[in-house]
């Protein structure tokens, strides 16, 4: 195995550049400038439930501080079928570019770097430490054939390896859904209902399951996956993605409940 890996390195020499920003480095690792940016992302305000980052309101200012338990407008309506979702950073700049190269140009080597960043995002969180099973958001068989690989699975593989938790193929997508892009939140939710199934409910019963996806845009996919897992008896559903979109905070009164993330009851059956 080591010989084959060496030969492949010879044939496809790892380029010694930062996989995110492309600046030349001594190692093919994420550079310290990019890491510093991720450190900043962690201090940015984001939704405590779905992990999406908050859009800067037009006037500037008025954003809740990082320490406060603020939800986004979607999450404050309730109905999230997962307890927590987090991402390594916002879906923009070098991170967006990297996710796109992984997904559409098939640069699978990027998955290792991205899953490293995801691990970095969750390793100190007590909730995520409880993870017992890692599962990737599946692609439909049709799409899998087209693309040849499932980017979420590649990310999950790297992450599971670093978290030392088994990655199990417990999920299946039963039908091809029309692309999520271009649909509103309601449409997205609708589009995916019943699209995910458990292959082996026994594997998740009573467990804390970590669902891995590439990008959180509205959280609809994770909602549907969460519903399927909860239906199969999973105790807790956590989510992690390489990147998350931006959304608006819900600043109305009563949102700042301390229990927002804690008193969670799965909806659905």
């Amino acid at each position: 195995m080591k010989l084959i890996a060496g030969l492949l390195d010879l044939l496809f020499p790892p380029r010694r550049i930062c996989p995110l920003c492309g600046s030349p480095e001594d190692q093919a690792e994420v550079c310290h400038r990019c890491l510093a940016r991720f450190e900043e992302y962690r201090r940015e305000p984001f939704c405590r439930r779905c992990g999406r980052y908050f859009q800067q309101p037009p006037g500037g200012g008025g954003l809740p501080g990082g320490g406060e338990e603020v939800l986004c407008r979607d999450c404050s309506l309730g109905g999230r079928a997962f307890r927590l979702a987090r991402a390594a950073g916002p879906y923009e700049g070098g991170l967006k570019h990297a996710v796109q190269r992984l997904k559409y140009s098939g640069r699978k080597s990027l998955a290792a770097h991205l899953s490293g960043l995801m691990f970095y995002a969750v390793k100190n969180d007590p909730y995520y430490v409880m993870t017992q099973v890692v599962a990737a958001v599946p692609l439909s068989p049709e799409r899998l054939r087209q693309r040849g690989f499932n980017q979420a699975e590649l990310l999950a593989f790297g992450l599971a390896d670093k978290m030392k938790v088994p990655l199990l193929p417990v999920l299946r997508k039963t039908r091809e859904t029309s692309p999520q892009t271009g649909l509103g939140r309601a449409g997205r939710e609708e589009n995916l209902v019943g699209a995910f199934e458990l292959t082996d409910p026994g594997a998740v019963r009573g467990k804390t399951v970590l669902v891995v996806d590439d990008v959180i845009t509205t959280g609809s996919t994770l909602n549907n996956v969460g519903r399927a897992l909860a239906g199969g008896g999973a105790a807790t559903v956590l989510c992690i993605a390489a990147a998350a979109g931006r959304t608006f905070p819900d600043l109305s009164a009563g949102n700042k409940t301390e229990n927002a993330t804690h008193n969670f009851r799965p909806s659905g059956p």
Partner: peptide, 11 residues
């Protein structure tokens, strides 16, 4: 492409 490795023209 299949292995998801970055190709390097000179190599």
């Amino acid at each position: 492409h299949r292995l998801g490795r970055e190709r390097d023209w000179p190599t």
